[in-house]
Amino acid sequence: MRALLFDTDGTDGERRWAIACGCILELLPVVRWRELPDAPRWMRGVFERQRSLHPLIDLSIRLGGPPISPRLGSRIVLVRLAPERTDGGLGGILLGGVLGIETIDWSGAGGHAGVACALDSPFGPIVPHHGTTVQLLHPERLLVGDDRMRLFPEPVWESAAPAAG
């Protein structure tokens, strides 16, 4: 599977992450964003793209690390955080740095399914990669529960209403 390799802190460190190219709508440069009060720490704020506001998630904070300090190689990857919504539930994930696009076999020898192999876990399998490891990330699963509801309330409510009705 062709995936986009990146890290969270901008250095070519041990923790590499990958997002399937099919999940990616566009890779954006770091733009200015606006913080949201009472939002979780990993929710850095919202940013504007083509006259629409999208939430911005700091993956490093979401994974329990320090906040990412944007630099020249930092990127925002635009993905569908809530695919079930009609507008796609678009949102950006703040990356430390893009390492490239490679073909990674997630089911190959030496791999590990991970501790959260559940179907709704955002963190996929981990495989060796050039002396280190890389773990697949499912962006559509990053927001769950209240967070997903708080960021995308209306579409969820609208979608749920017909379901409930």
């Binding site: 566009e26 890779l27 954006l28 893009v98």
Partner: peptide, 16 residues
């Protein structure tokens, strides 16, 4: 950097 970004997006689109 912008070229890199553009090429990555191109690669992603090419993958798609």
């Amino acid at each position: 950097d912008e070229t890199n970004l553009l090429s990555v997006n191109a690669s992603i689109e090419a993958e798609k």
